[in-house]
């Protein structure tokens, strides 16, 4: 049982939650995630560990309400418990002093997920730039948090309500045009964004590391649900990643696998809307 210590709404459907998980906090590093299961008949879902306090024994998660499980999670209040939290899972991101600028490109919950990696690269003595994207200013999350660990933070909004009007890729292009000496790009967010950024950096031969968010069941390498093709080989995201070379990922396959349960997810969501509060699963 893991107690929810605090909860804050950041935008309409994005939440920050602090959860007691001493064993995870003791060991976790930038780039790792947890699997959580809210109750007996719940699904196991992966969420990135965005921050942690080893001494106090808690971790921070940021999540977007997009389906039955994340909507249910959003209804829990401080003091409530989550049945299972397991982690830290995945391999820690490879962090080192690089010869040039590190650029974290974040979209949606990816901004929070990329935060610990940006911080780690800063701590390793690098120049760190963040490019954050949102549809509109109201939906932008974690800007202050990123500012505290980055040399520069740029924002792109689709409607131009804040920062540059356009996409994160436009801002990245601008940085390249201005001659920023970019050596490593780290896009985190929706696969389509990660795909576009990877395609952009390829001709410039800029190393691009992506954190893949494929569908998972166990998160420990036991089932193969999370598999993707990287450099022509089948790889398990949870046990061999989650970071991979963005230039080698088969994006179309990755994106279509993410939609594998589209029909069932809709059923689950309407079931949740009807029965949400009673967690009506038979065992």
């Amino acid at each position: 049982m893991h107690t929810i210590l605090s909860k804050k709404i950041l935008t309409e459907r994005t939440w920050h939650m602090r959860v007691a998980a001493p064993l995870v906090a003791r060991k976790c590093c930038a780039g790792q995630f947890i699997m959580l299961r809210i109750h007996e008949s719940g699904e196991r879902i992966p969420l990135t560990i965005a921050d942690w306090d080893r001494a106090a024994g808690f971790i921070d998660i940021y999540f977007q309400e997009i389906g039955a499980t994340t909507e249910l999670l959003a209804t829990l209040e401080p003091g409530d418990t989550i049945l299972d939290v397991v982690g830290p899972l995945g391999n820690p991101s490879h962090v080192e002093k690089i010869d040039g600028t590190f650029v974290m490109v974040g979209g949606g919950f990816g901004i929070a997920a990329g935060y610990p990696v940006a911080r780690a690269f800063k701590e390793a003595g690098n120049r760190v730039v963040a490019v954050l994207g949102a549809k509109t200013r109201k939906l932008l999350i974690c800007e202050e948090m990123l500012k505290s660990v980055c040399d520069e933070v740029y924002v792109a909004t689709n409607d131009g309500s804040y920062g540059t009007q356009g996409l994160v890729s436009d801002v990245l292009q601008g940085l390249l045009d201005e001659g920023e000496d970019i050596r490593l790009v780290y896009p985190v967010g929706p696969p389509i964004m990660m795909k576009i950024i990877s395609q952009m950096t390829l001709p410039h031969k800029i190393k691009t590391i992506v954190s893949l968010n494929s569908i998972m069941v166990d998160g420990t390498g036991m089932c193969g649900s999370c598999r993707v093709t990287v450099a022509g080989k089948t790889r398990f995201v949870c046990s061999e990643g989650i970071d991979f070379d963005g230039h080698e990922v088969n994006w179309d396959e990755m994106m279509s696998r993410q939609k594998m349960y589209g029909r069932q997810e809709a059923v689950a969501l309407s079931h949740h809307h009807e029965h949400g509060a009673c967690w009506g699963g038979a065992r």
């Binding site: 699904e43 196991r44 499980t69 069941v217 036991m222 279509s256 689950a268 949740h272």
Partner: peptide, 27 residues
């Protein structure tokens, strides 16, 4: 899509009780 390892298929069915979806929420 639709190609499973037996481990995934059986884990979804046995451990996660998908046969009872959506009461159990793993599809």
């Amino acid at each position: 899509n639709g190609v499973y390892s037996a481990s995934e298929y059986l884990t979804r069915c046995n451990l996660m009780k998908s046969h009872n979806f959506p009461g159990n929420s793993t599809p």
